[in-house]
């Protein structure tokens, strides 16, 4: 038995070493930096230990703006994208002809580069000296004034951001949900049919509970992904996100490390730890809810 354990650990060793060096050690390091005031990575020196970094970050208006943006994106895009994905998957699984074609179409955004997609979004929404942009042309056709989605009011920018995020995360969710729907055994539906179960009740009492583990999986990974959003923002609003007022927490961390105002690894570490705590808390809550709701 002991021998067997040894063998198992031997097999696991490469993975453990790799994770240890590139995951666990940096994590601990970040925690350490976050309490070292004025840490300088070049000279490896700092001049004090304490919670000052946290205090600074939590009082930084840019951080608070980034936190607010991140929360708005999370709260809007996760439910909207999951719901939309569910509707589209239901549609996809109930049509027979052209199903493969539609599945491919819906999956395309997933294999497309996000920066390229962001560029397209920018072109669609941006108002320039020469043109109001395609979206604005449509809005005008309905008799409303042109809105600058890229450099205009906050809500307009946030709308584009959420729209974009939903669009980018949708394909993966559709993929997961269509396969989840397909895995529900036909016999359940046949049994329901013989019992004369109304369509809506079949959905709420059979389909939904059966695919609920997958929905929870998508919600949890969706939350985590949305909290870590950054590249999507850059794709649409450019690298100076603070100026655009569209920064996210990860963006703030990046700026603190490398941006124009960069060179503050201690602040970045503190912000990273704060984000970690938020994501951790939300995920734990999610898991607790899903444990209680999915019982089989």
């Amino acid at each position: 038995m002991k021998n067997k354990n040894l063998k198992a650990f031997l097999y696991l060793l490469p993975a453990i070493l790799f994770l240890g060096v590139f995951m666990v050690y940096p994590l601990i390091d970040v925690l350490v930096y976050s309490f070292e005031e004025g840490y300088n990575s070049a000279s490896q020196s700092f001049f004090g230990v304490g919670a000052y970094n946290y205090s600074y970050v939590l009082h930084d208006t840019y951080f608070l703006q980034a936190l607010k943006n991140t929360f708005i994106i999370v709260i809007i895009t996760v439910p909207v994208s999951t719901l939309l994905a569910l509707l589209i998957s239901l549609g996809l699984s109930s049509i027979k002809p052209l199903r493969n074609l539609f599945q491919t179409v819906y999956f395309l955004p997933y294999v497309t580069n996000t920066l390229a997609v962001g560029l397209v979004f920018m072109i669609l929404f941006k108002k320039t000296a020469y043109t109001d942009g395609l979206v604005n042309l449509v809005i005008k056709a309905f008799g409303a004034g042109p809105i600058d989605f890229i450099d205009g009011p906050y809500w307009a920018k946030m709308f584009v951001m959420c729209f974009y995020t939903v669009w980018v995360v949708l394909p993966f969710k559709i993929l997961i949900l269509t396969s989840a729907l397909a895995s529900v055994k036909d016999d359940y539906y046949k049994a329901a049919k013989i019992d004369g179960t109304p369509k809506f009740r079949v959905f709420t009492k059979i389909t939904l509970p059966m695919i609920s583990p997958m929905i929870f999986y998508l919600v949890i990974t969706g939350f985590i992904g949305a909290f870590k959003a950054y590249s999507d923002e850059v794709a649409i609003f450019g690298t100076d996100l603070n100026a655009a007022g569209m920064n996210t927490v990860v963006g703030y961390i990046y700026d603190m490390l490398y941006g124009d105002s960069g060179g503050y690894p201690s602040y970045a570490s503190a912000a990273a730890i704060i984000l970690f705590l938020i994501v951790f808390t939300v995920t734990v809550i999610n898991l607790m809810i899903s444990k209680r709701k999915t019982v089989y």
Binding site: K185, K190, G196, T197, K205, M210, S212, Y296
Partner: peptide, 24 residues
């Protein structure tokens, strides 16, 4: 109809399974 693999709804308990057709 009783199916070969029974097709009982796994997320419902026995009582809920049996009452299901009546609730329809």
């Amino acid at each position: 109809l009783v199916f070969q693999n029974y097709a009982l709804y796994p997320h419902l308990n026995v009582y809920q399974n049996i009452i299901f057709p009546l609730q329809n």
